[in-house]
């Protein structure tokens, strides 16, 4: 088997694994988990009828989404109206390509041992790929708001996209600190740096806090979810969407949440590594996947937890925070990290 063919097959296997785990298993579990966590925080039972502990609730929801009537508003531009959910969903599920979810897995095939790095695409622009996809995802929201031919949708769409653009800046600038210390944009290098030194959250606590809060704003999660709040804007930019297209928006939001958690873990909390343990061989690779899954799961839980605990920001408070607080603080963080790097090198 030629190395090229093996690489293609390995990439296909990794994609199948990540999509299978994330899309087929994690997202339904996440929907169920959100409702159970919400219920626990609000001191009520939550879904407990469909299956043991209500575990098949997501299946019932999926059947409901397929069976509902698909309504299109009268004066909406049909092509763009139908396209918008895809533009939101596809970047959300493709951002997993650059995130390393384990150390390398040695595979022996036909007597020859290959070392398969557990990352789907190790491009040398690294996390810029994820920022690019977030920028593309904005189009889905703007189009959904505009083509619905509805005032609430338009307002929700514009507010949401303006919020994403504003917090993208603070997110990017605070992430630069991580890349300066690691010396590369590629995420495996960032994880390797954290393995040799210390988790990035310790020296760059300000950057980590800014990044995590900006990730909340990027994924439109409370306390930054005014664009889709029920009391204010009916349902924001996905008011006019029903059945399967709404399910696509819904899935896209949760996939974004998972991707954001994975990115936070990789950039600031060591990724798949633990301090002091060497992950070698097949057992090491599996252990590293488990460690990564546990850390990401913790952050997903924090996303869910915060949603049902904090009230939401008003829109002008939200924009003030993004431009007047986080942007200067992230630049300060950049300066601080630059001084650290220069002092360390000198």
């Amino acid at each position: 088997m030629s190395p090229e063919l093996f690489n293609v097959a390995a990439a296909g296997a990794k994609i199948a694994f990540v999509w299978g785990v994330v899309l087929a298993a994690l997202l339904p579990m996440l929907i169920w988990a959100e409702r159970r966590v919400a219920a626990f925080i609000q001191d009520r039972p939550g879904p407990n009828r469909v299956g043991p502990l209500g575990l098949f609730q997501s299946l019932a929801d999926a059947i409901k989404f397929f069976m509902k009537e698909d309504v299109t508003p009268t004066y909406a531009d049909r092509f763009l109206f139908n396209l918008a959910p895809w533009i939101t969903l596809v970047p959300a599920i493709t951002t997993f390509a650059i995130i390393p979810f384990g150390s390398s897995l040695p595979v022996t095939l036909g007597g020859q041992t290959y070392d398969v790095p557990l990352i789907i695409a190790d491009v040398n622009v690294g996390v810029l790929y994820m920022f690019a996809l977030t920028s593309i995802g904005i189009y889905g929201i703007v189009l959904a708001g505009y083509t619905s031919n509805d005032k609430f949708s338009l307002l929700g769409g514009i507010r949401s996209s303006a919020q994403i653009i504003s917090y993208e800046l603070a997110m990017g600038i605070s992430a630069i600190g991580v890349f300066m210390t690691a010396g590369s944009l590629r995420l495996p290098e960032v994880v390797a740096y954290q393995q040799q030194h210390i988790w990035n959250v310790v020296p760059q606590i300000l950057g980590a806090v800014i990044f995590i809060i900006s990730a909340f704003a990027e994924t439109n999660r409370l306390p930054f979810d005014l664009p889709e709040a029920e009391a204010e804007l009916v349902a924001g930019y996905h008011t006019e969407y029903s059945a399967f297209k709404f399910a696509m928006f819904f899935m896209g939001e949760y996939a974004n949440m998972v991707a954001a958690s994975a990115l936070i873990v990789t950039l600031y909390f060591g990724g798949w590594s633990l301090p002091g343990i060497a992950f070698t061989g097949v057992a090491g690779a599996l252990l590293s996947i488990a460690v990564f899954a546990a850390k990401t799961g913790l952050f997903i839980f924090i996303f869910l937890w915060v949603r049902w605990t904090l009230p939401r920001f008003r829109y002008d408070q939200l924009m003030d925070l993004g431009w007047k607080v986080f942007l200067p603080l992230s630049v300060l963080n950049l300066l601080y990290v630059a001084i650290l790097v220069a002092a360390g090198k000198a």
């Binding site: 690019a132 977030t134 920028s135 904005i138 996209s161």
Partner: peptide, 14 residues
């Protein structure tokens, strides 16, 4: 290429 997508396609055209 990443810059073109982030800045051109993702900011200017938005």
């Amino acid at each position: 290429a990443a810059l073109q997508v982030i800045v051109y396609a993702g900011a200017i055209l938005v």
